[in-house]
């Protein structure tokens, strides 16, 4: 995976988190996870998890909080 795409994914995930951060607190993390589960193709989620597993640098805390609710795709 290129560095470029990785940066983009982090950016996109954070953008989603920014929206849900403003929603009622108890729904925020679930909102992020549902959104990513519904709209992110497995290779994007896989890449996201690679990044999270590697420490998740640059990801918004809400994305990290949502991670356990995001569907982890099978390894490629």
């Amino acid at each position: 995976m290129s560095h470029d795409t990785n940066t983009k994914l982090i950016y996109m995930a954070n953008q989603i988190a920014t929206f849900f951060k403003s929603q009622p607190q108890d729904e925020a993390a679930q909102g992020v996870a549902t959104h990513i589960n519904k709209y992110w193709e497995p290779r994007m989620r896989r890449q996201l998890f690679q990044h999270i597993d590697g420490g998740g640098e640059g990801l918004s805390p809400l994305v990290l909080e949502a991670a356990s609710k995001i569907k982890r795709p099978q390894a490629a």
């Binding site: 519904k38 992110w40 193709e41 497995p42 994007m44």
Partner: peptide, 9 residues
């Protein structure tokens, strides 16, 4: 049952 790629993706 998994979503596919969007154009930018």
């Amino acid at each position: 049952n998994e979503p596919g790629l969007r154009i930018p993706n």
